[in-house]
Design a protein around this nucleic acid. Sequence first.
DNA 1: ATTTTATTGTGATTTTAATAACATTATAAA
DNA 2: TTTATAATGTTATTAAAATCACAATAAAAT
Lengths: 217, 217
Amino acid sequence: MNKEIVLRLSKYKRLLQKLKALGLEKVFSNNLGDALGVTPALVRKDFSFLKISGNKRGGYSIDELIQEIDDILGKHHPLDIIVVGCGKIGSALMQYNGLSRDGITVAAGFDIRPEKVSYTGEIPVFPMENIEKFIREKNIKVAVIAVPENAATDVYEIMSNAGIRGFLNFSTVDLKCSKSPDKDGAGKPECMVNNINLAVEIENLFYYVNQRNGETE
Amino acid sequence: MNKEIVLRLSKYKRLLQKLKALGLEKVFSNNLGDALGVTPALVRKDFSFLKISGNKRGGYSIDELIQEIDDILGKHHPLDIIVVGCGKIGSALMQYNGLSRDGITVAAGFDIRPEKVSYTGEIPVFPMENIEKFIREKNIKVAVIAVPENAATDVYEIMSNAGIRGFLNFSTVDLKCSKSPDKDGAGKPECMVNNINLAVEIENLFYYVNQRNGETE
DNA sequence: ATTTTATTGTGATTTTAATAACATTATAAA
DNA sequence: TTTATAATGTTATTAAAATCACAATAAAAT
């Protein structure tokens, strides 16, 4: 499955939950397409691909869609993550309410600096030495990387070896996930990395802003 | 110009700066392609498109590439932004060093809550009433939105009217930029919005992680 | 000076994702 | 019960982006 379609699924679901909260029960490919800025045909294709069928004239059942999308996104399992690096960005994420509202739980934070370690807060922060054990024991599969540039690859390696398979990387290095080593390069990726570089995003915005001011092209 | 190519430009540049710091002077399309995970042909096409030419056997001059990319990304103008919403995410961004390292300056923060307002810190936090005046006077064009869901569209409207043209949106609503109203829908977008939904990103990771465990397909 | 080589620059091809178009069919209306 | 309608589901088409492939050529080697 395509990366874009998975992102659309999350967006459909958020929208559907809001529609449901408003008391709606059915929705048309039309409505979802408008909201996401895509054609209704694409919405139908997505659902068709997911084996969700609608009703020839009544559209799709919102409940069924939500249920089905949650299945696909694995929302019926606990979504436990850890955050590595409890500096500015890392601790903001740990305290961010937006995650728990979507069923995502930050199980713990980790930091190499002793002064960041704390077992008293709502979410404990452990020293880095404990990370491997924690990942294995709690069977954690997804982690946020919020460490400085020079530590990122090391931290990635450690976590990757301990069993983390999904990384949300806020460090300034672009991490690429290693392939399965046993198949000498031909294997499918062992993990998934999602790099978010805030400076890149902002530079990107400035580019467009400058475009607008400059050439009328 | 394509959105993807602009992102690649930022990535090329970061890489080039590191290579330069190591003392290198020339680089081949080959090297850049490897690092970014694209083919060398695409790298050459990007540069060709930017009117940067290399040397038939000596590759590209790192200095020239950096200079040229900075030109295109508008890095010779000041990159001043504001942050609206000084909660967890917002204040983390304001204090984040990664931005200033790339020449991006947070000129001010804004918050509707009086207790967040402060003129003593390194970056002042003003009350929301002042935002329009500030944007106009300082000619700010790019803003980060880090407010709760219910405030996002209002805040977006206010800033859009005051002159902001590039938005990095961390709120949980997907903002879509409005088109120029004078051309009844046919005009080019008036602004650019970059939505980052952290919960969506993490859900996305869980999807791939679950895939790996499940079907061997 | 000549030949070889390594790299650029670009046209052709492939791949992928999205749109457009339409045949199908469940519901509603007559 | 028949007809009309409004939505789905899917096939064909278009558009876009990346890769492939190779001719052109500057530098290095002989």
